[in-house]
Design a protein around this nucleic acid. Structure first.
Lengths: 230, 230
DNA sequence: ACCCGCTGTCACATATCTGTAACAGTAATC
DNA sequence: GATTACTGTTACAGATATGTGACAGCGGGT
């Protein structure tokens, strides 16, 4: 499972560092930004899974940034937790109304931060991800984590499962070994490209003679998953 | 849809009245209790949909009451929002650890109260909590707190019971160890993920050879409860 | 104070997965 | 047909994930 990436937006570097340390210990990847402009660039570029946003920032206020993100369809789905300095009623409400999913009052403990963060991430599983995929007589259900064909369940290892899930949601397109490594293993791994071949082989074997034709070799280019031949 | 019933537990009658007025204007039914004893009686008797609980009460502290309620399976599902007087970190943490689903710092505005209350209610809508569950020859009756199969009663510890109840009401879906910790133990605990494995083991043992196949290991993903084979 | 059941964690055993290398097979090019 | 580049297949050792029993701490009950 790839790590979740959290963007921390706060003008105080001390706070950014503290939060970064706490989150990385808990297994998250962290990004930092000191102002709204830098934050926006990072968000568009890196697409973090969650944003910790200070309410008061030097240039544009955090609330403004939150509003802008929620208006943009490409960023609207990213959950936001607001960090508020004081215990002002109106701030909390404003934060929530601006589209934030939760807020935390400073000072906060790492434990509390983690608890809230976990809760928000759990709540905001993007829609569509959990709907069943069906291609060429194969059905993959992400919720039950099952793959079945007309003749019964298929036995897949974790990597085979991820690879099949990727292929079924990206049919009829050739992916190079390098692209597959990025998509199935994660962007930050360094593996031999032939590793892909081996897992393709394992996946084909798991699919059996009824369905292994769905994985097509494109010589010199990579692999393609398609219900159509050739 | 029938009105939701909210129980307000606070020793200051002024606060109880204010909250009652606010909530009734918003279409909720309200109950009031000035101390933990009265509260407990009302909870068992009237089974409110949500409890607003003052942290500090004359006889037993609110936290104690929360703990007791969360230990009792017949009341554990009722969400609790703690009302804390000061902005003390420890109080917040303690409140959450005691099983509360959220907390609000006094003084709070009616707007905030309603917002939180709505959020908590939305999150925890227990569909037919009191009806018996039956899966794969197993029957779990929440009212009598009993689990039985064709061969007789099953002996389950508290955690095993909660886990089985969760599984039986969420079949055919894989849950990660982290999700199970959240769902069975609560979102605010920090336990080793392997703890889940051990309790899975205990539950399997308790289910016996006739039913332990209902709990399926999904390598690399978590566990699944299903009457269908892997 | 004592017992006893429950809980969370650890340590070790077992099962399964993974990446790589090595070799065999195949297609393209000349 | 020979050469070359590419892909298929297998084996295997190391890495990971999970199963399992043991144990100490805790709290409730006596």
């Amino acid at each position: 499972m790839p790590e979740k990436t959290i963007l921390i937006v706060d003008d105080e570097s001390a706070i950014r560092e503290m939060v970064t340390v706490a989150l990385e210990m808990a297994g998250y990847d962290c990004l930092q930004a000191a102002d709204a402009k830098a934050a926006h660039t990072l968000i568009v570029d890196k697409r973090p899974d969650l944003i910790l946003l200070d309410w008061m920032l030097p240039d544009t206020s955090g609330i403004e940034l939150a509003r802008r993100l929620k208006k943009d369809d490409t960023t609207a789905a990213i959950p936001i937790i607001m960090l508020t300095a004081k215990v002002e009623e109106d701030n909390k409400i404003l934060g929530l109304e601006s589209g934030a999913d939760d807020y935390i009052t400073k000072p906060f403990s790492p434990r509390e931060l983690l608890a809230r963060l976990k809760a928000v991430l759990r709540r905001s599983t993007p829609a569509g991800v959990d709907s069943a995929l069906e291609v060429g007589g194969l059905t993959l259900d992400p919720l039950s984590h099952r793959v079945s064909s007309q003749f019964g369940q298929l036995e897949l290892g974790p990597t085979e499962y991820r690879m099949l899930q990727f292929f079924m949601s990206h049919q009829d397109r050739v992916y190079s070994r390098s692209q597959l490594l990025d998509q199935v293993w994660g962007a930050n791994v360094y593996l031999d490209e032939r590793t892909v071949d081996v897992h393709i082989r394992r996946l084909r074997k798991a699919l059996g003679t009824h369905h292994d034709h769905l994985i097509q070799t494109v010589r010199g280019a990579g692999y393609r998953f398609s219900a159509d031949p050739g």
